[in-house]
Computed example of a mutant assay.
Amino acid sequence: MKRQNPLLEELKKVLPEIAKNADKTEDLRKVPDENIEILKKVGLHKAFLPKAYGGYEISLPEFGDCIAALAGACCSTAWAFSLLCTHNHQIAMFPKQLQDEVWKENPDAMASSSIAPFGKYEETDGGIIFNGDMKWSSGCDHAQWAIVGFLRDNAEGAKDYCFAVIPESDYRIEDDWYSMAMKGSGTKTLNIKNAFVPEHRIQKAKDMMEGKSAGYGLYPDSKLFYSPYRPYFASGFAAMALGTAERMLEVYKEVTSNRVRAYTGAKVHAAIPAILRTGESTHQILAARAFLEKTWEEHAVYAEAHRYPDRYTLAHWRTNQAYAVKMCIEAVDRMFNAIGANNWLLDKEAQRIFRDCHMCGAHAYTDYDVCAQIIGREVMGLEPDPSLL
């Protein structure tokens, strides 16, 4: 049974305003301040915020539907804001001391991230000294904190993949986001130099995947925080691909319905190729939504039961969303290839949707070449390949 989603109903009321700002968002190369304020008034930033700080703690299916709808209006805004939201889920796995630092005085505070473990560090009393030019920090212009990745030596002589949480006072944003797609996501670089990070702001990624982090069990009545961080962190990528594909279907129908062949005057919408493309794309997008909804609902059921997934289940969660993105991109390509040369012009919505949907499939987590290997090895009973994230 479909979950009720009052947050989605409130969000739908402001989507026309977000859509009007889509060109401005691309021109600014970041999400406009007014978009952030609109979405905060709706309360979307509270989706994964603990109730202890005034959050909603909505389920992943509810959140996925919201992000898909937002992406249909402006995918750049959805990309940045989705990550700002999902980072709350990750921060809730840190110690209470860190959570109080982030949210006690400002429950609207948000964090961007650069989680690839490229940061450099030195051990010091009570924590580490962190340095790095941390790239790909979407939405950082609107964040008060940053979650950054690094590899830390452990007592066994190996390295632990870790996250450090750093306040905005300890980094500088480098305005270097010039991209072909997702132009307005503001995915810039954080320049961090000699930032002291105390131990309570550091957690191991592995612990966050296995219910062993310092924040585990802080909210015993929660139906959200008994779950691994990574599927929630990555949930928006597939939701955005779905939202852009659903919007492309609407645009394609509208454009094609009014289109005539330039040299013959023939109407396009009743032609067999247009009908075939519409039909197959419709089925593919519906299949992607059904597949994602089933996967999201499974996430929610596990979280509500305070149950962590086994390796086989986690492999499916890890890879299902990438296959859904693949289907959405195929559907978008099928329609865009036949929508007409006029829609390559930069003032046309279709070309923006085409670019942004492809970007949804370019993230390391949605790389289907990687995901096909992960699920293939799991189904064949082989050990996981550590070179595959």
Rank of each mutant, 00 (worst) to 15 (best):
N5L: 01
L7Q: 00
E9V: 12
K13E: 12
L15W: 04
A22I: 08
T25L: 09
E26C: 11
L28W: 06
L44M: 11
H45T: 09
P50Y: 02
A52I: 03
G54S: 07
G55S: 00
D65C: 05
L70I: 03
A71Q: 05
L84Y: 07
C85I: 15
P95G: 02
P95T: 03
Q99H: 07
E105L: 07
S112I: 06
I115S: 11
A116E: 13
E122A: 14
D125R: 14
G126N: 04
F130Y: 15
S138I: 02
D141W: 14
I147H: 08
A155C: 05
G157I: 02
D160N: 15
S179Y: 11
L190F: 08
R201T: 08
M209K: 02
G217M: 00
D221M: 01
K223C: 10
A245P: 00
R247P: 07
R259G: 07
G265A: 07
I275Y: 10
I275R: 15
H283R: 14
I285W: 10
F291S: 13
E297H: 11
Y302D: 12
A303V: 03
A303I: 03
H306P: 06
R307W: 08
N320G: 08
C328H: 06
A331N: 10
A331C: 10
A338H: 15
A338F: 11
W344I: 07
L345A: 13
H358G: 07
A362T: 10
E383C: 07
P384C: 04
